[in-house]
């Protein structure tokens, strides 16, 4: 359910990110069949959005995203908060302990923004990604006139 809420947050800012020239790629770690169901349920088959899955979680390791040994009481509180926000538990086939995160990579494949969740409900604020994208736009396009 945390994944659904995170994706909903990204979707609200998707047009803006698109206008800023950001290609959004959502990476999951579920089985491909589960991913198909998630894409259908969330309406993710849309322009400007790529959804992939990596059950081996190699991408997650490469991105330095955390996978704690166990999920503490904080995770339970976060689950209750998600339920209160109207999200229902998902039957995830992936690794429940794998936490999420976000990266923004520039055209030269440099990571200009990186954030790793500290618990399942520690979601990435899409406004942080938009802020990083705006800063990147300024750095790439505003040479000589940055005020």
């Amino acid at each position: 359910m945390h994944g659904a809420r995170q994706v909903d947050g990204i979707l609200t800012r998707l047009p803006e990110l698109e206008r800023l020239g950001v290609a959004v790629i959502l990476v999951g770690h579920d089985h491909p069949d589960a991913l198909d169901a998630f894409v259908r349920e969330m309406g993710l088959a849309r322009p400007g959005l790529t959804v992939v899955t990596d059950p081996s979680r190699a991408i997650f390791r490469a991105a330095g995203l955390q996978r704690p040994r166990m999920l503490g009481p904080r995770a339970a509180v976060e689950t209750l908060r998600e339920l209160a926000a109207g999200y229902r538990p998902e039957r995830a086939s992936g690794d429940r302990r794998q936490l999420g995160g976000a990266c923004l990579v520039d055209r030269a494949t440099r990571v200009v923004y990186h954030r790793s969740s500290r618990s399942p409900g520690d979601l990435i604020d899409p406004a942080d990604i938009v802020h990083a994208a705006l800063a990147l736009l300024v750095q790439e396009r505003a040479a000589g006139r940055r005020v």
Binding site: E16, R19, L20, G21, V22, L137, R141, A142, R145
Partner: peptide
Amino acid sequence: LVLGRDLATKLGGDRGRA
């Protein structure tokens, strides 16, 4: 959103992928 629009005006429409 406001700042993004202002930047788009200042920096022109030629925006590549970030």
